[in-house]
Amino acid sequence: MTTPGGLAEVRALVFDVFGTVVDWRSSVAAEVRSLGWPVDPPAFADAWRAGYPSAMQEVREGRLPWTHLDGLHRRILDALLAERGLTPPEAEVAELNRVWHRLAPWPDSVVGLRRLKARFPVITLSNGNVSLLLDMARHAGLPWDAVFSAELFGHYKPDPEVYLGAARLLDLEPQQLLMVAAHPSDLRAAAACGLKTAYVPRPMERGPGGRMASWTPSEFDLVADDFVALAGALGA
């Protein structure tokens, strides 16, 4: 864990959620496995998640109208099923699409957030839609002070409107906001908008042997092993 520097101005923390706060891969794979479909559950989870960036790009380029994340997830899921020649009942597919509402947190997430919340407002800054994030918080016991979603801004991260919109809604200057994420690209985009950054690596996000994006400690204002360590570094 590195020692924080230049964070005296920070007044609130905003968090990426998928992969940073919750373990999407294990959660999705477990539900796919329970359905008994003739697929490899972890590989199916990976393929589902892999369709997400290109789906967002379709929205950015105007090839799709604004579509919240539940809608994008369903488009990707339908395509995966078609590619595999699978035709499960509609009710089963619709229920699986909502698996993203009930993802399990990493073991340190809830206790770490509670500690951080004692000192700072803790807020989501996610591409997930509001209803998804609310359901997830209730399912996983995540103690958010507020839920900020790309849906509020009509833009998906890493568009600057999301990071700057969060600062605006909190009536803060960008440098008074600390973005916490397990993804260097998210943090780089936040830093380009003037936010402070905290990197919390999640080496198991993509399972055993999963590749992590390259990064250097000097890129971020703070690096911590998990949310408990992050709380300690910030004096919470």
Rank of each mutant, 00 (worst) to 15 (best):
E61N: 12
G62I: 11
R63D: 02
L64F: 10
L64V: 08
L64Q: 12
L64G: 00
P65C: 15
W66T: 07
W66H: 06
W66D: 12
H68I: 11
H68C: 10
L69D: 06
G71H: 08
G71F: 00
L72N: 02
L72G: 05
L72F: 01
H73I: 09
R74K: 10
R74N: 05
R75P: 12
I76A: 10
I76G: 05
I76H: 02
I76E: 05
L77G: 04
L77S: 03
D78K: 11
D78M: 04
A79Q: 14
L80R: 00
L81G: 02
L81D: 06
A82I: 07
E83P: 00
E83D: 13
R84K: 05
R84N: 00
R84I: 07
R84A: 00
L86W: 09
P88Y: 15
P89D: 02
P89A: 00
E90Y: 07
E90M: 09
A91M: 01
E92Q: 15
E92I: 11
V93C: 08
V93S: 11
A94K: 13
E95A: 15
R98G: 08
V99S: 04
V99P: 08
V99F: 10
V99E: 05
V99C: 10
W100C: 03
W100I: 12
W100E: 02
H101N: 14
R102S: 09
R102C: 03
L103W: 05
L103G: 04
L103A: 09
L103C: 11
A104H: 14
A104G: 13
A104I: 14
P105Y: 02
P105W: 06
P105L: 04
W106T: 01
P107C: 04
P107T: 02
P107H: 09
P107D: 04
D108E: 08
S109L: 06
V110H: 00
V111T: 14
V111A: 15
V111S: 11
G112N: 02
R114C: 02
R115E: 01
L116G: 00
L116Y: 03
R119H: 03
R119S: 01
F120T: 01
V122Q: 10
I123D: 06
L125V: 08
L125G: 02
L125R: 03
S126C: 09
S126K: 07
S126F: 00
S126L: 08
N127R: 03
N127H: 00
G128Q: 03
G128W: 12
G128T: 08
G128D: 07
N129V: 12
N129Q: 00
V130E: 14
V130F: 10
L132W: 01
L134N: 13
L134C: 09
L134D: 14
L134S: 14
D135L: 10
D135Y: 12
